[in-house]
Each structure stands twice: as structure tokens, then as C-alpha cells.
């Protein structure tokens, strides 16, 4: 197992290298110019050109890429063109809100979606199943920002239970922290809940047809044990896989959710950086997210061994 994990970690290096090359090339050929954004609307073309030169953006592609890669190899993500702050600092400032949002959303999703999927499979074909799947289709179809506005409308403005926007660090207390994250997590979680509920149902339906489930029922085991101990564990591999894949969904959804709820996380940093063509920041964030995604996939693979003893590396 240890050697497998080490091999997988080593295998991330070429993946990250390809991501790095791809991201850098894409940004290089993308239209837009940070110098023009920096200079502002009243700047002259000559000013824009001088700024471009001072930022080194007029250098050949290979020179720019080589310099950037050299810094990356020294664990230096570079400096933001706009803020003049290290990209690592900007990411460090923003990572807590995003990780908090993703963690709460993930917990919320698993707590809601898995039981819903199990119940839907158990009551397959009944009104309970159809209702749950109806909600799943609805949750899957409705855009995150619409859910966000509706939640804010009801729970922040009408009932005044929760704030409209912002983020409070965990260090300032659990409730202030959680209070700011409830609405965004529910908004972001809707799609995810729908996805996991549907996958759980499909996987459970397959397992519930197996002989050992019939045997379990025949020997008089209660329904809860059959569903959640025997069936769910055997249905878990595809569910875990989709939860892992869904991290990408969460990353994409966080971009919108953080904008709607004004959460200062990595999603908003990404949007701001793209709109301003702050290349080092975009490159740093994409590399980070790629690394996280590879790591999550590794964790998913390792988790397989916990839920299915037949899987060994």
C-alpha cells in the first residue's frame, strides 16, 4: 500500500508538469493584456507598452515559461501582477473560506444525499422514490446562483436568521464561522446532493438484488441493518468515486457561490484574476486545484480498500 501511494504521488509529477505547460500556453495565447487593465482607461498606448515591458510580458514565450517554471521548481508561485503580493500569500489568505465552504458542503451532502439515495432505492417505484428523485432532478437543474438568491431572500432578508454575505474565520468562533457558511453551503450543495442521491440509489438498487441480501432478509435481519450495514457498504465504491469526482463540481460551484455571498475565497480570487489577466495568480490557483484534485483521487483509491476488502494494491 505504502509503495502504491508513493508511486501514485510520483505519478502526479508528470501530470502537474503537463498541467503547468497547458495553463501557461493557454494564458499566453488568450486575448487580453494585464498591462492595459493596470494602466486604466485614461492611459495612453505608450503607457500600456511601458507597463508591459516592465512586467516582462514582451519577452518570448519560452523565456517567460522557463522563468516561471524555474520559480515553480523552487516552490515559488511568483508575484501577483496587480497586488504586488506573493501568489502564495494571496492563496493562503483565501484558502480557509474555500476549504470551509467545501468541507461544510461535503458533510451536508453526505448526511443528506446518501440516506435519501438509500431510502429511494429501498422504496423504489413508490411515491417516496419518485418524490426524492423529483427533488434530485430539480436540484440538479437549478443554477447555484438562483438557489443562492432564494435562500438569501428567505433566510437572510425575510427571517433575518443569517447574514447575507461575508465570512468570519473559524478562529473568531464556531457559530460566527458556521453562520456565514450555512446558506452558501446549501446553495452549493444542491447539485451535489442531487448527484450523490441518484448515484446512491442506482448503486443500492443493484446491490439489493443480490442473493446475500435475500439471505439477510431470510434470517430475519432488520431493514436498517440490511440497508446501511450490508447493502450500503457494498454499494459504496461508485458512491465514493462520484464523491471524489464531485470535488471538481464543488470547485466550479464555489466560484459562483463565493461571488453571490461575497465570500473572500479562492473562487473569487480566480474570477478576479481571470478578468484582470493576472497570469501568476491564475497559474498558481490552477496548479493548486490540479494538485488537490489528484490528491482527492488518490484518497478515493485508498478508500476503496476500506469499503471493499477484495481491492488490494
Amino acid at each position: 500500500m505504502v509503495s502504491y501511494i508513493l508511486r501514485r504521488i510520483l505519478a502526479t509529477l508528470p501530470v502537474m508538469a503537463i498541467v503547468a505547460l497547458f495553463v501557461f500556453s493557454l494564458l499566453y495565447i488568450a486575448p487580453g493584456d494585464p498591462a492595459a487593465v493596470i494602466a486604466g482607461d485614461q492611459a495612453s498606448p505608450a503607457d500600456v507598452e511601458r507597463i508591459r515591458q516592465s512586467l516582462g510580458l514582451d519577452r518570448p514565450f519560452l523565456v517567460q515559461f522557463g522563468t516561471w517554471l524555474w520559480h515553480i521548481l523552487h516552490f515559488d508561485l511568483g508575484t501577483s501582477i496587480f497586488t504586488n503580493l506573493p501568489v502564495a500569500s494571496l492563496i493562503a489568505q483565501r484558502i480557509e473560506p474555500t476549504l470551509s465552504l467545501m468541507a461544510i458542503t461535503l458533510v451536508l451532502t453526505i448526511l443528506i444525499a446518501v440516506p435519501l439515495g438509500v431510502v429511494a432505492a429501498w422504496k423504489a417505484g413508490s411515491w417516496v422514490d419518485r418524490t426524492i428523485m423529483g427533488f434530485a432532478v430539480f436540484g440538479f437543474s437549478i443554477p447555484v446562483f438562483v438557489v443562492g438568491y432564494v435562500l438569501a431572500y428567505v433566510f437572510a432578508l425575510e427571517f433575518e436568521w443569517l447574514p447575507v454575505q461575508g465570512y468570519t474565520p473559524l478562529a473568531e468562533g464556531f457559530w460566527p464561522w458556521l453562520k456565514n457558511l450555512i446558506l452558501p453551503s446549501v446553495a452549493l450543495g444542491c447539485v451535489y446532493i442531487a448527484l450523490i442521491a441518484r448515484i446512491t440509489r442506482a448503486s443500492m438498487l443493484e446491490v439489493l438484488q443480490q442473493d446475500y441480501i435475500r439471505t439477510a432478509r431470510a434470517k430475519g435481519l432488520d431493514q436498517r441493518s440490511i440497508l446501511f450495514v450490508h447493502a450500503l457498504k457494498n454499494a459504496a465504491v461508485p458512491i465514493v468515486t462520484v464523491i471524489g469526482i464531485g470535488i471538481a463540481l464543488l470547485i466550479g460551484g464555489a466560484v459562483v457561490t463565493e461571488s453571490v455571498f461575497a465570500i473572500p475565497g479562492l473562487g473569487r480570487l480566480t474570477i478576479d484574476a481571470i478578468l484582470r489577466r493576472d497570469y501568476p495568480v491564475i497559474q498558481g490557483i490552477v496548479l493548486l486545484f490540479s494538485f488537490l484534485y489528484v490528491l482527492v483521487n488518490l484518497m478515493v483509491d485508498v478508500t476503496y480498500t476500506l469499503v471493499d476488502p477484495r481491492i488490494r494494491y
Binding site: 437572510a156 432578508l157 447574514p163 461571488s259 455571498f261 461575497a262
Partner: peptide, 18 residues
């Protein structure tokens, strides 16, 4: 200075006293 990119959120925050 609190940066709120979404106008509806800014309006709601002003009304809520945030």
C-alpha cells in the same frame, strides 16, 4: 472597504445593516 461584486448582495447587505 468591503468588496461585494454582486449588486443584489450589496443591496441586501445595505438593507440588513451589514
Amino acid at each position: 472597504w468591503v468588496v461585494i461584486p454582486d449588486p443584489a448582495t450589496a443591496a441586501a447587505a445595505l438593507q440588513n445593516g451589514e
